[in-house]
C-alpha cells in the first residue's frame, strides 16, 4: 500500500514537471509580437508610410522600412536587416512596446547603393518575421 502511494506521488511529480515545461513554452510562444505590415516607402507622414513601392530612385535620398506589430505582448526588440544583394548592409535595432507598436528604420541612399535590396525583419532571437524586396535605381 505504501509502495503504491509512492509510485502515485512520483508519477504526479513527473506530470507536474512536464506541465510546467509545456506551459512555459506555450507562454513564451504567445509572448512574441505579431507583424501585420512591413513595407518599403519613400517617406513617413504621421507615422503612415508614403509612396510604398518596389523600385526607388536614388534621387529619393532616403527610404524607409515601416513595420506594424499588433499585438505586442511585452516589450521586446526587433531588427531591420538591410541587405544589398546578399550582403548585410545595415542592421537596425528597434524597440517594441505593448500592446501594439509601429516602428520604422531608414537608410540614406548613395550612388553606390543601386541594385537589388531586401529588408529582413527579425525578432529578438533572429527569426525572420518578414522580408520586403525592392530595387534602388537611377
Amino acid at each position: 500500500m505504501r509502495i503504491k502511494y509512492k509510485i502515485t506521488l512520483f508519477v504526479s511529480v513527473i506530470f507536474y514537471i512536464v506541465f510546467l515545461l509545456f506551459s512555459q513554452a506555450f507562454s513564451q510562444e504567445i509572448k512574441k509580437p505579431t507583424l501585420v505590415q512591413a513595407v518599403i516607402c519613400e517617406g513617413m507622414k504621421d507615422r503612415i508610410p508614403q509612396n510604398q513601392a518596389a523600385v526607388f530612385s536614388i534621387s529619393a535620398g532616403k527610404i524607409f522600412c515601416f513595420t506594424n506589430f499588433d499585438p505586442v505582448p511585452e516589450k521586446t526588440v526587433i531588427h531591420h536587416n538591410w541587405f544589398r544583394t546578399d550582403i548585410l548592409n545595415t542592421k537596425i535595432k528597434l524597440v517594441l512596446n505593448p500592446p501594439k507598436w509601429s516602428t520604422f528604420s531608414s537608410i540614406q541612399l548613395r550612388e553606390s547603393d543601386k541594385g537589388p535590396w531586401r529588408v529582413e525583419v527579425t525578432d529578438s532571437e533572429g527569426t525572420v518575421l518578414n522580408m520586403a524586396r525592392f530595387s534602388i535605381t537611377d
Binding site: 510604398q52 513601392a53 518596389a54 523600385v55 530612385s57 541594385g115 535605381t137
Partner: peptide
C-alpha cells in the same frame, strides 16, 4: 527570385508591386 531593376522610372510613376 528577385527582379533586378535598372535605369530610371519616370518620376510621374511609382512601381508599387512586383
Amino acid at each position: 527570385i528577385q527582379a533586378d531593376w535598372s535605369g530610371k522610372l519616370d518620376e510621374r510613376f511609382i512601381l508599387t508591386d512586383v
